[in-house]
Every structure is written in structure tokens, then in C-alpha cells.
Amino acid sequence: MIRIKSPSRLHLSLIDLNAEIDRVDGGLGITLDYPGMNLTAEKSDTINITGNSDLAERIKRSAGSVLPGGHGINIHIEDDILSHVGLGSGTQSALSAASAVNEVYKLGLSVRELAEKVGRGGTSGIGVASFEYGGFLVDSGHKFDKKGGFSPSAASKADPAPIVFRHDFPDWDIILALPDGQGAHDTKEVDIFKKECPIPLEEVQDISHVILMQIMPAILEEDIDTFGKGINHLQSTGFKKREIALQSEDIKNLIKFMNDVGTKGSGMSSFGPAIYGFSDSRIQSKKIQKDVQNMLDDTVGGRAIITRPNNTGAKISEV
């Protein structure tokens, strides 16, 4: 029997949804140690998924897309990631299931090959790379003439985007607010891409400048103040600005509230509603967590947690 423990991820922003220079998507993100997906797997004659998870059907489909003909697998889900809240549950569950089959049957497939088989990474490469490497990641998107349009990963058949920058995320606390409810997904997500794209080129240039000259150097220099300024800026431009505009006033207020109570930068992951902020003081982190939990209790409900970066990716072991 094997065990797979995969991370979740924050998707901080897409970079280029203009495509004037024949490249589209691109993104940056941070791998999280928790929440995560934890499952065990062993050979079987059929495909059996057990454990209380709304990701069970996705896991079954993903396992089936990798299984050799005439074989099966037993997968037990011990812990999972909330669906459609901005933490990458779709990619992590699909890759966990595919990796389980890969390990149990010793198929020798790479993470990228598994991602292609289960159809993940067609817009953002961050989730696939989080599973494989962990850390802070920037991907370079896809050639527009090959992808053929603006669409989310779930509706794209493009290969996973190549990673152009990967570095261990500094030893900072990540305060994560998980409001009750779900963000846009499935057909609604597709419709948003169709309506909002292409994004004006000057906004894409603004995002690229901030990422290259502010956020990436701040990671290398472990400068949380500069990093936080860059994160705050991303919320007000490009596709991220449009994702936030779709949220309720409570969610919009929560982003601002995190900064007001002491985080060094705050933002929304993917289509939300997960909101994050950063701190380099454990005492301050606990105070922020308490304040954010009180706000959630008074508004939309949900929970606030302190998590940490994952700089290694998924863990696979025998049990």
C-alpha cells in the first residue's frame, strides 16, 4: 500500500490574458503545507474510492484515465481540500489519484505526463508544479496559437505550462481565511473568461513589471514588506481585479481587513473565496487569525487558519 500526501496552493494571479505577443496565461503561486489531500492506495480488480469527500468522483475518473487495461485500484481518502474555494483541489486530487496508480503499478510516468493524462494544467501550471516541486512558482503560459483562446484549466486541453521560476518560499506565516461558499467554476468560469478577455495590454505590462521587479526579488531577498506591496498591487489590476469584482462586499472587505489588522500584503486566491495574508511574526499571526475569525463569524461564516509554505511538493511513501 502507498500513501500520497499532496499540498494545496495559492494562485496569486494570471499574468497575460491579452495574448498580443502570441502567449497567454502565465501565473504565479505559492504551495501550501495545509490544507492538503491525504490518501492511501493498493491494487484491486476494480476501481473503489472510499472516504467522505466530494472529490471522490474526480478521483475515480483520474485513476481510470491512467490505469492499465483490466486493472483496478482501491483508494481511501483520509483528508481532502475544499472544492472551488481557490486552493487547487481539482489538480491536486487528479494528480494524487494518477500518482497512486503510477506508484502501485510502477508505470514510471512523470508528473507532467500524469497531468496530461488527467487533463490538468491547461491554463495555469502552478498546481502541477506545486505537486511536483512545491515552493514559490511562476509559469510562462502557452503559445496562443496552440491553445486557441482564453479559457480556464478545466476547459483547456493545452499541456501544463512550463515553469520559469521556482524558489523556496520564505519562512513566513500564511494566514488563510476560508469563507463559507464557493467561487466561480465550470460553465460560469468559462463564461467569465469569454466576457472579460482580452485584458488591456497596459494592465498585463503592469502585472509583469510588478512580478519581475518587485515580487520575485522580494522572494530572493526575503523582504516581506516589498513582497506584500507587490501582492497588494496585483489585486487592483488585470484579471485578478475582475475576479475580485465578482465577489460579495464581505469578501472584498475581508481583503482590506487583513491588511488593516497587520498582514504584509493580502489577496484572493484564484476565483476565491479564499483570502490570504502574510506575517513574519508568530505573535502577530495569532492575533490576525483571531481578528479574521471574528470577522468571518460576524459576516459570511467560515474559518481562519495559520498555515506554512510547502517547499517539497507531494510526499509519496509506502505504508
Rank of each mutant, 00 (worst) to 15 (best):
N311E: 08
K256C: 09
G272C: 03
K264M: 11
I251F: 00
S266M: 05
R303A: 12
E249Y: 08
P309I: 02
S279H: 10
V292N: 01
Q235L: 04
K241F: 09
R303E: 14
A245N: 14
G301R: 00
V300D: 00
T237Q: 09
T299S: 07
K315W: 05
T307V: 09
F257Y: 15
K229D: 15
D260C: 09
K286G: 06
K287R: 13
I275M: 03
T237K: 13
M258C: 12
K286Y: 13
T307E: 11
S285L: 07
F278I: 05
A304G: 08
M268G: 04
I231L: 11
I306T: 05
Q247Y: 04
I283H: 12
N311V: 01
Q293K: 04
H233R: 15
D297Q: 06
S279D: 10
R282K: 10
R282S: 14
S236T: 15
K240Y: 07
S279W: 06
I244F: 00
S248T: 15
K290Y: 10
S236Q: 13
D298L: 10
L246P: 05
P273E: 03
G277P: 08
P309G: 08
K241R: 14
N232Y: 09
G302I: 01
K256Y: 09
K256F: 12
R308P: 04
L234E: 02
A304F: 00
G228L: 09
S236W: 10
T307A: 13
E243R: 04
I275A: 01
G277F: 07
D298P: 08
D260N: 11
A245G: 11
V292W: 01
M268N: 07
A314V: 04
G265Q: 06
I283C: 11
N311Y: 04
G265E: 09
